[in-house]
Design a protein around this nucleic acid. Sequence first.
DNA 1: CTTGACCTTCCAACCATGGGAAGGTCTATC
DNA 2: GATAGACCTTCCCATGGTTGGAAGGTCAAG
Lengths: 131, 131
Amino acid sequence: MNIGEAAAASGVNAKMIRHYEDIGLLPRPARAENRYRRYGARDVHELRFIGRARALGFSTADISALLALWRDRGRPSRDVRRLAERHLDDMRRRIANLEDMARNLETLVAHCHGDGRPDCPILDELAGVGG
Amino acid sequence: MNIGEAAAASGVNAKMIRHYEDIGLLPRPARAENRYRRYGARDVHELRFIGRARALGFSTADISALLALWRDRGRPSRDVRRLAERHLDDMRRRIANLEDMARNLETLVAHCHGDGRPDCPILDELAGVGG
DNA sequence: CTTGACCTTCCAACCATGGGAAGGTCTATC
DNA sequence: GATAGACCTTCCCATGGTTGGAAGGTCAAG
């Protein structure tokens, strides 16, 4: 099947399929006589794998490692879990950062009249007034 | 004062000060005879403003708007608050996305032995096994 | 005069994704 | 068999925030 069909079948668009090939995440596929890329069921399977990993927030570097682990039937599940835990920690850190910022901004917004008057605690805080 | 002192005084490093100038966030400063940028207390104040806004997660585009609102003494606080609320919504969306991913991955990690055995629900899920 | 710290501009990289140009190929329809 | 439209190819560029470095000018202290 051509790249467009593989994209439709996997949910990964053609542009990204070429990109994943570029960065070595996917092996270079066989080419037809017209130089079109040719994909099979196995490729679509890997593309779906990538799509699901992306949906869990894994970076392409992580996905590369996950694919290698997946291809290696005998790998210890320890390795997979460790990778997932590192990613989880990273996400928790990002969440905590965002929540910190959101909480602070929420407080400021709550104290801002938000009407026609010019005085505004949000700008005051940013300007370092009384902070 | 030179850019290095302004950086030290504001907490925004020199590289970023030049960048903010490039993208029009800051006015181009006066230059000394040696072409060095010259900054004053007002500039340091604006840089601190930018630093605090970045710490609240505002994009440079938002900060540009906030600076304009700040400089305009008569602006209605409504405008500031609206901008802040949009940013808050955006952050909440990002948090929700991350939490979704983290929850899903947590479940998978919890079900993975994480020992020497090869079977791993994380890879199974990514591969679409039983999913 | 030399050394080292500072400054200048310019170029490039990260990451994932998307847009688009310029050109080749296939398929359906007239 | 011509033409249209959908598909494919490679290539370059942009995003956003930040960092790194190269190559060169300037200044202060020794």
